[in-house]
């Protein structure tokens, strides 16, 4: 069996395109409110902090802390069957308290990851030109 299984690819829309375009250019881009500066992820049509509809996006530092994680050992999509085990994580970004995203921790032994680990963004090819922002430990 050498059949290539397609990855689960995003279907970018008006709100999510900046994230995927940013990733393709090697930047972690998060929705940013033009009125109050609030960052929110995932993007929404309205700023939950000030109710402005005037929303843009901003490249953020790409540094953060592992808030939590798990190590999937069963594939619920065929694309992940040969990628087990991997680290599925929530990372809290340095750029705003409580600003978190779902991601993967890569370039690491899964069992060595700890809550509180310092991590930085890197980009893995997902397929069809999409780059996926993931995180790796910041070497001390």
């Amino acid at each position: 069996m050498t059949t290539e299984v397609s990855p689960p690819l995003p279907l970018p829309n008006e709100l999510t395109t900046p994230f995927w375009d940013g990733a393709a250019n090697g930047q972690l881009v998060i929705q940013s409110c033009n009125a109050c500066g609030h960052l929110q992820h995932a993007p929404e049509p309205i700023c939950s902090a000030c109710l402005s509809f005037d929303l843009g996006s901003a490249a953020v530092s790409g540094k953060g802390t592992v808030y939590t994680f798990c190590i999937p050992t069963q594939a619920f999509h065929p694309y992940f069957a040969d990628k087990l085990p991997f680290v599925l994580a929530v990372v809290e970004l340095d750029d705003q308290p409580g600003l978190k995203m779902i991601t993967n921790i890569v370039d690491v032994d899964p069992d060595s990851v700890r809550v509180g680990d310092r991590v930085e963004v890197t980009f893995n090819p997902l397929g069809e030109g999409f780059m996926l922002p993931v995180f790796r430990p910041i070497s001390q």
Binding site: P7, L9, P10, N13, H41, P72, H77
Partner: peptide, 16 residues
């Protein structure tokens, strides 16, 4: 067609 909505920020990471 791809993953619609905000699930595109979880499923590509293997969160299903």
């Amino acid at each position: 067609k791809g993953i619609p909505g905000n699930m595109q920020f979880s499923m590509p990471y293997g969160s299903f």
